[in-house]
């Protein structure tokens, strides 16, 4: 009797999450999938016609925006990594008693909403802002040029907004690095640079993989940064989906676009994990015998 109850315990623990997932993820996904294969309009109603043309249209008409989204997200992810790794390294190894304060500073922007922070960047990068006039003074921006409504502005916004998603997993990975391994490296004739490249970097690879995924995936579907900081030539695929859904109200096309984005990201993810190794993603050094 008890054994039966005991065997059921995991399922009871699983149930709330599972129900949540089914109601708010699986069922909507099913409706979205079905919707993406329908034709019609909001006035006449939608019929399931297995309209795969929704998909071919999505790709042929909006390949620019797809490409741009991955390009922006890719550059932003790279910048996040280049800024985030030294930052996480400094917090993990050099911050001493300032460690918690610095971590708080990384997370602090979350206390303000995403929209407000992005609009703040719009003010910062505005044509008349002190930042832009300074950039003009040092000739980084031409006198008649502007920063707002450029690719640089959108990438800068994405980098800023997603930096914490990169820093936190990197910090978690770096903090777990055993200092004695670095000493062992030095003891075995590796200079500081070699110790970093041969030991610290490979050991923190799971953190890098996690950070890249957490940054790249949401960044490539983002439309807020492009809306506020970009112009018409900076529209990402997120902007297209948003306008299809909320402005044009072409639900089928919006659903098809969403599924295409998801599929591309999924394929990219599989390739990436294969390349980086599942070991790196799962952090297998924990599972000793």
């Amino acid at each position: 009797m008890t054994s039966v109850r005991q065997r059921l315990v995991p399922y009871w623990l699983l149930a709330p999450g599972l129900i949540w997932l089914i109601v708010f993820f699986v069922i909507p996904m099913y409706y979205m999938g079905e919707l993406s294969l329908k034709t019609g309009s909001i006035d006449t109603g939608y019929q399931l016609t297995w309209a795969f043309s929704n998909y071919t249209d999505a790709i042929s008409q909006y390949s620019t925006q797809f490409f741009r989204a991955f390009y922006y997200a890719g550059v932003a992810t790279l910048l996040c990594l280049l800024i985030g790794y030294p930052l996480a390294y400094a917090i993990a190894f050099k911050a001493g008693r300032w460690k918690n304060l610095m971590l708080f500073a990384v997370v602090a922007p979350f206390f303000t909403t995403y929209l407000i922070r992005t609009i703040a960047w719009k003010t910062i990068l505005d044509d008349s802002s002190p930042v832009v006039s300074f950039l003009k003074t040092i000739h980084l921006v031409p006198q008649d040029g502007r920063v707002l409504a450029t690719s640089a502005a959108v990438i800068a916004g994405l980098t800023y907004n997603f930096l914490p998603f990169m820093v936190l997993p990197l910090f978690a990975a770096l903090e777990r690095v055993d200092i004695r391994l670095l000493e062992a490296g030095k003891d075995l004739y590796a200079s500081a640079t070699q110790t970093f490249l041969r030991i610290t970097l490979p050991i923190t690879m799971p953190g890098i993989v996690a950070g890249v995924l957490l940054t790249f995936i949401p960044a490539s579907g983002d439309y807020v940064n492009a809306t506020f900081l970009g112009g018409t030539n900076q529209a990402m695929i997120g902007n297209v989906i948003q306008s299809k859904y909320l402005v044009v109200r072409d639900y089928s096309e919006a659903a098809a676009l969403s599924f295409t984005l998801m599929a591309i990201i999924l394929v990219a993810l599989i390739v990436y994990i294969k390349f980086a190794g599942t070991e790196a993603l799962m952090g297998d050094e924990e599972e000793a015998e």
Binding site: R180, L181, A184, G185, I199, I203, M205, E285
Partner: peptide
């Protein structure tokens, strides 16, 4: 003391 072998 802790061996400090490189896990990777």
């Amino acid at each position: 003391q802790s061996y400090a072998l490189f896990p990777h």
